[in-house]
Design a protein around this nucleic acid. Structure first.
Lengths: 221, 221
DNA sequence: ACCTGAACACCGTTCAAGT
DNA sequence: ACCTGAACACCGTTCAAGT
């Protein structure tokens, strides 16, 4: 009879995930996890090769939950932007876990319903095969990159803003940089992302349109 | 008389920097640094509050070396792309140090000649004040985000490519995703970045142009 | 088969003491 | 003023032994 107390790998990953989410990656240790599960540290090593393997599993499991939904009647640019925003929002939702993704090499090796959605958008724009995948990658990594930047900068955009002003004005700043320095105030990371995404998607659309043109010209000649 | 053996903070930071660069951040410790400097660990704590403060100093010092040069006679889009590419190249140059930047909250608080260059490009495009800074930020964080993505994924794009194919085909993949799965092969990270940068800069240029239009319209009415 | 206690080789950091 | 030895409270991981 399978005792309910049997320590399944799933329960280990679950507990590790909530410990990290609650107290942060820096405060996480195999020993604390063992205490939380009421076992000896060694017991964990019977399920996972080492700490890194366990963390990879935690990251992978958490990323599988990504779901993004967009409104079908919106224009193309807006739907692509919504996809990027949704992806980023999921990654950013839990700072402690995001920190984990950045160390686990696993972002791309998880199943994403969002991948299918994104590929659909690219095919709708007229791209096929490798070109569709390449265009999707641009949007996908844009969202991931923005999330990683946010994680790297921590939760103190105000602090960061003042810091750059200080750096820009103390050193041999050019007239231009000194003049624009004050505008390096606190950034609204979401607003910043929206602007960047708008530019990226606009550029992507125009690139797709112009390569469709040149393909059409090629067919005529 | 100042003995040459006096342990300056600079020498500590220098040694820490090369230890991390050579053997990686994971293998770095205050004790090993102390051995390398032939002092007691405690001596380091007389100069720095703790390990984190020392690492922040290392990151900050390394980022101050960023220099990007672009060709003045290239078209605007190309120069902006070159700026982004140069920034990213510097960040990516040393993987071990990049890992460090991602943890140090310091990317933006260092002096960058590149900042001045980027701001100049935005003013040249007709942007002023806050709008110039916002546009520059888009390009800057695009480069940083891409570098962080690269660091997060490690040096194994081939591996990563096959992993996503496996994930896409094993699960309930839609017809579309299964069909496009094979195109998720190994990615050339630099090529990927070039494409994304091209889209971003194209979109930025068109956004600048269209807001100049609407500003002109406003002035006429 | 599954789990444990004790140990090894490390950490970051601090104390009281030396010169 | 500047540096040290010894210690504290942790780590990840492994061994040999238990049931």
């Amino acid at each position: 009879m399978a005792r309910s107390s049997t320590l399944s790998p799933e329960r280990i990953v679950d507990t590790a995930s909530s410990l990290i989410s609650e107290r942060g990656l820096a405060g996480f240790s195999m020993r604390k996890l063992a205490v939380a599960l009421d076992v000896t540290p060694m017991t964990l090593y019977l399920r996972f090769d080492n700490k890194e393997a366990l963390l990879t599993e935690v990251a992978s499991r958490n990323l599988q939950g990504i779901r993004v939904s967009i409104r079908d009647d919106d224009p193309w640019e807006q739907r692509v932007s919504a996809l990027a925003t949704g992806l980023r929002a999921h990654l950013v939702a839990d700072r402690n876990l995001l920190q984990l993704y950045a160390q686990s090499d696993q972002i791309s090796s998880t199943t994403l319903a969002a991948v299918d959605l994104g590929l659909g958008l690219m095919e709708e724009a007229g791209l096929a095969g490798e070109a569709a995948v390449a265009a999707f990658r641009v949007v996908f990594w844009h969202a991931v990159g923005s999330a990683l930047v946010l994680a790297a900068l921590g939760d103190l955009p105000a602090n960061q803003g003042t810091a750059i002003v200080a750096a820009l004005t103390t050193t041999e700043a050019s007239e231009r940089t000194a003049r624009l320095g004050p505008y390096f105030g606190p950034v609204d990371a979401d607003e910043q992302f929206q602007y960047a995404t708008h530019c990226l998607v606009t550029g992507l659309a125009s690139d797709i349109a112009s390569s469709a043109d040149s393909a059409a010209r090629k067919e005529l000649s």
